[in-house]
Design a protein around this nucleic acid. Structure first.
Lengths: 145, 145
DNA sequence: CTATATGCAAATAGTTTGCACGGAT
DNA sequence: ATCCGTGCAAACTATTTGCATATAG
C-alpha cells in the first residue's frame, strides 16, 4: 500500500531516503516514483518517463542518484542476459520471471533454500545469497483471452 | 581433455568454429584459447592476456569476434551483480558460484528442475530456462591451509 | 547557515562502424 | 578472382566529473 500526500509524493519514499542518509530531493523522489511505476526500468525508460514529469532533471543527476541509491541499497540493479540493465526498488527477496514472448518481467517470491543447501553439501562452500532468473512463456502468452 | 597440435592450437576450437560457420582465424583461436585458460574472462582480461600473446590483435577484432561467437552460441556472456560482464565458452548447463572473499568464479553442474517445476505449478507459466548465481564463501576461503 | 545536490559542459570510457588491405579458398 | 576478416581511425554511445549555483534540513 502506498501513502501519497497532497503533492502526489509517495511518503514512504521520503522516509526511505532519510533512513539511508540521503536527502529527499524532488529529483530523487521522482526517480523512485518512476521505478515504482515501472517495477523494473532501464536507464532509457527512466530517462524517457522522467523527461515528461520533470523536464529539467538532468541525466547526470539520474546517474548520480541511481548510484547513490544502489550504494545505500535502496535500489538494485538487475542484470539479464541479452537485455540492458534494469533497476528496481529493493524489496523482499524474489526471483525474476522474464517472458520470452512479451518481454514482461515479473517478480516471484519463492524459497530457494533447498537448492542452496544442496550446493553447500556438494561443494563445501558457504552460500550467502542467490540471484535467479527464469526465462518463461508467461501464463498470458500461453493462453491469450 | 584438450587436444593440442604442434603449433599449440587447441584443435577442438578449430572444429568448434567451423561447425558454426566461422573461419578458424588465428585471432578467433587466440580468443578462444584465452577464454579456455581463464574459464571466465572480462573484456579487460581478454585484452590484457591477448596483447601479450598476440600484440597486433585489435580491440575491434575482439569485440567483433566475441559478438559473432555469441551469436553463433559458441560463447556466452555472464552478467553478475556489481561486476563487469564475463565471457565464457558455452558448455554444459551450470550455475555460477562467486566467492565474495577471493572473487573466484566457479561453474557447478546441478539439476534445477525441482525449482522450475515449482515455478510452473505456482505461476502457470512455462519455464524455458534458468540463470542462477550463488554468492558464496568458497571452501578454500572458509578453511585456508 | 551549511553541507549536499543539481545542471550544465566537458572529459572519459566503452563499443561500433567504414574502409582499404591481406589471406584463404 | 572473390569473399571474408582484420587493423586502424573515426564515429557514436554511455558514464563520470568539475564547477558554479541552488536548496534541503
Amino acid at each position: 500500500m502506498l501513502i501519497i500526500n497532497k503533492k502526489g509524493i509517495i511518503l514512504s519514499h521520503i522516509k526511505l531516503l532519510k533512513n539511508h542518509e540521503l536527502k529527499a530531493t524532488p529529483q530523487r523522489l521522482c526517480i523512485l516514483d518512476t521505478l515504482d511505476e515501472c517495477g523494473h526500468a532501464t536507464l532509457e525508460d527512466i530517462q524517457k518517463i522522467i523527461s515528461k514529469k520533470f523536464p529539467t532533471l538532468s541525466l547526470s543527476t539520474i546517474y548520480r542518484n541511481l548510484n547513490d541509491m544502489i550504494n545505500q541499497e535502496i535500489v538494485s540493479e538487475v542484470k539479464l542476459a541479452n537485455k540492458k540493465d534494469y533497476f528496481e526498488i529493493k524489496k523482499e527477496k524474489h526471483v525474476h520471471l522474464v517472458c520470452k514472448k512479451c518481454g514482461k518481467i515479473e517478480d516471484f517470491k519463492i524459497k530457494t533454500d533447498d537448492l542452496s543447501k544442496k550446493i553447500e553439501e556438494l561443494t563445501g562452500d558457504k552460500v550467502l545469497d542467490d540471484t535467479i532468473t527464469f526465462d518463461v512463456i508467461c501464463k498470458d502468452c500461453l493462453s491469450p483471452k
